[in-house]
Computed example of a mutant assay.
Amino acid sequence: MVAMWERGLAVSAPGKVIVHGEHAVVHGKVALAVALDLRTFLRLRPGAEGRVRVCLPGVGVQRSWDTPELRALRGRIAADFEESKSPSLEQLDALREFAGIAAGASGPDSLATLAFLYMCLAISAKYGDVPSVDIVVWSELPTGAGLGSSAAYAVCLAAALLMVCGAISCPLQEGESTARWTEEELTVINNWAFQGERVIHGNPSGVDNAVGTWGGALRYQAGKITPLRRVPTLRILLTNTKVPRSTKVLVAGVKEKILKFPAIMNPVLDSIDAISQECQSVLEEMPANPSPEYYPVLEEFFDINQHHLNVLGVGHPSLDRLCQVTASHGLHSKLTGAGGGGCAITLLPPDTSPLAVEAAKQDLCACGFECWETKIGAPGVTLHSLSSLNTQVLHVLSQS
């Protein structure tokens, strides 16, 4: 195993979007989350002897530590390291002090550093010595947009550190460009990635890291996560309105509306739940590369759910504008995530002309939005040979 990764390898994990069920899921309804083929990449190489280095150019982190000082820190706080046990406040305080992170600091640089240190020490405590590694992580995902960027980071870290410590195999054979781990190994990766998410978010649902680990699509209801039997790869536009919003405030607003008008709002939640379940049935019936006739029903689900989300009070003028722009090109959109701005997804049926897609993208960018043409239903965490990565990813990783 060591021989393979000594030449350098890369790990990638996808982001996620909610297709249907946002907000309703808070009230016990079904949500469908799918893997987004915008990915986070981690390059793994042996570090200088006795050194651990981590570089995250996207959030301005470049840190390195001596392995003896990490071992000493691990010895002081290692009592409760376990893949099923939340990081303790004492452990996190000790890590903050060690890394010089101010109490209460919640910027992506501080949280990413904290998650790295916790996962490095916890995984090495369970499976071996603190490894001398050089890790660079770069993402195609914007941070703070509800697209699972922190979970993709945690999944990549878990896979890389577990592999270096010998807890999981290095499945990439000589001459192969990509490989994936066994189901049992993916479960271990997911468990540790969830701990990384707990460091960053406190009390996450576990959906984002599960999507990052397994890919495809997952059904989530009342804490239970179930992978869909199979899911087609669908082309979409993902658009970030760049309008900031507070998920906490939006969730509280929906709750208030339900308490105020239960006879009106509960049927809306029931309808969103029905859309999620109907959509699951349609997706599981669709072939891997679906033809255009499968799309009209999915487009209707988008339209109906977008109206429901406006009724719940989580729409925004920027999202209305986005839906109008894409409708003018014959395309159907809905918000994804918390709403109130943030991101939206637009279905691209296979018979959509490239000219229409390009025109829609130009019009969306003219509104001040950021737009990506990508896919949903992407594969989960994957091991790559460095030579198989595209030029842009290789360039960023090699510059750091």
Rank of each mutant, 00 (worst) to 15 (best):
G144W: 05
F261Q: 10
Y220N: 05
E293Q: 13
S150L: 08
A193R: 03
S132G: 11
A72D: 15
L383D: 13
T143Y: 00
W5T: 02
T326R: 00
P350M: 03
S318T: 11
P379I: 14
K248I: 03
L283I: 14
L121N: 10
L9Y: 04
Q221V: 10
F369L: 01
V268F: 02
D80H: 13
N240E: 06
L38D: 05
S387G: 08
A154I: 00
P46K: 09
V311P: 04
P350F: 10
A210S: 15
W372S: 02
M286E: 11
G368W: 05
V268A: 06
V11N: 03
A151C: 01
R235L: 08
Q280W: 09
A263G: 07
A160K: 00
T143Q: 02
E83Q: 09
E285L: 12
Q280R: 14
S149R: 04
E370W: 06
Q324D: 12
P171M: 10
F81R: 05
K255W: 03
D320V: 11
P87Y: 04
K260D: 11
G58T: 11
G215P: 01
G340F: 09
P108H: 00
A159F: 13
L56K: 00
A263C: 05
T67I: 07
D270Q: 14
H20W: 14
G104Y: 11
D273A: 02
F261H: 03
G202E: 04
Y295F: 15
I101R: 04
L117A: 04
V251H: 07
Y118D: 08
S110A: 15
K224Y: 04
N266P: 02
V268L: 09
A78Q: 12
Q221S: 05
R245S: 07
G100W: 07
E6N: 13
P171C: 11
P354F: 06
Y153F: 15
S398K: 13
L283G: 07
L347F: 14
G212L: 11
P296Y: 03
Q362W: 01
R180S: 15
P244K: 03
W138E: 06
L114K: 01
E256W: 07
V137A: 07
V2S: 13
P227S: 10
A105L: 01
H308A: 14
A102D: 13
I189R: 10
L95P: 02
Q392C: 02
I272H: 02
P57I: 03
R321G: 03
C365K: 09
P142A: 06
N310H: 14
F369R: 00
N390A: 01
K361I: 15
L347C: 03
I189Y: 08
K260Y: 08
S328G: 10
S86E: 11
G15L: 05
E256H: 13
V314S: 06
E140L: 12
I272Y: 00
V155N: 03
S205I: 08
L73I: 08
G330R: 10
A102F: 04
R235Y: 06
L42S: 08
E285P: 00
G47R: 12
